[in-house]
Design a protein around this nucleic acid. Structure first.
Lengths: 149, 149
DNA sequence: GTAGATGCAAAGTCTTTGCATGTGT
DNA sequence: ACACATGCAAAGACTTTGCATCTAC
């Protein structure tokens, strides 16, 4: 399996030792297009019979985030941080406040604004975080039934 | 002092009982244009001699957030949630990764995108969260000195 | 008077850390 | 061989909860 090799190279290129646990965590992250918690990675590995300790998951995620391989985000809605593979494709999500589903958004309206801010304020922009909140179609229906008081 | 009265009305209009503690928390929030932690509110009140328990601060913030009087946000950079008064003016910040200063941004590029998404996906947008990360002028200088290895 | 607010202490989550052991290079 | 990764258990940080008492309405 060649994606396994890629993961190894990816780690080494970032200056990280290539260990089974690290490749495991990378693999789980690759399997999830949506941000996941450390706990979820831990459980996913446990379910597939691969043992790992939760603290190791945290330490690996920290190392990966430090090298920019994963992005750490945190939502006011859910306790606990979320981690997502830093695919080069820049992407934002619509987060449903009902079911917590995350729907990807293709566009990002930030480019022009960032350039303008750098020009006008001297602030050096390195990134941004955008989340759109609301209710998905299904939860809108569910709410219109429940809220009929 | 009339702003004290306003705080009372604000609470009652939102269907919350008007208590000294609640007005205290509102007052601290009004004094801070930047998002603050629960702990910081607790300390601010302690310093001015107004006693309050930390759990009460949390409960009040939860109630205020539920009614939409304050916004709860959480940053991947700092542990702990941040709370900020929901001034009607919609506002985003540039967050400095060096000193954690938050500089307000006047514009918000989300309006058109939100309308488009609602039209195309049926998702009902209720709000969004945008933060821009980078380094302020001062921290850029500091870093260019330190990183000269 | 009563529902709800508050304080205090205890419990709960999520995350980090210390230390002994194991492993990639 | 040696620096670094890992597991385990314990500690830590932040937040919530249970319960008795107090207070706004």
């Amino acid at each position: 399996m060649e994606s396994e090799k890629r993961r190894g190279e990816r780690l080494r290129r970032s200056g990280l030792k290539c260990t089974p646990r690290r490749k495991d965590v990378l693999r789980i992250l690759e399997q999830n297009s949506q941000p996941v918690t450390a706990e979820r990675i831990f459980m996913a590995l446990k379910e597939e019979g691969t043992g790992i300790s939760l603290s190791t998951v945290y330490r690996i995620l920290e190392a990966l985030a430090e090298k920019g391989l994963v992005l750490k985000i945190s939502s006011a809605e859910s306790d606990g941080a979320l981690f997502v593979l830093n695919r080069r494709v820049h992407r934002h999500y619509m987060v449903c406040l009902g079911c917590h589903k995350m729907l990807p958004v293709d566009e990002c309206p930030l480019g022009d604004l960032e350039k303008k801010l750098e020009r006008e304020t001297g602030f050096a922009v390195t990134g941004h975080r955008l989340e759109i909140y609301g209710y998905c179609r299904e939860c809108q229906k569910a709410r219109s039934k429940t809220n009929s008081h």
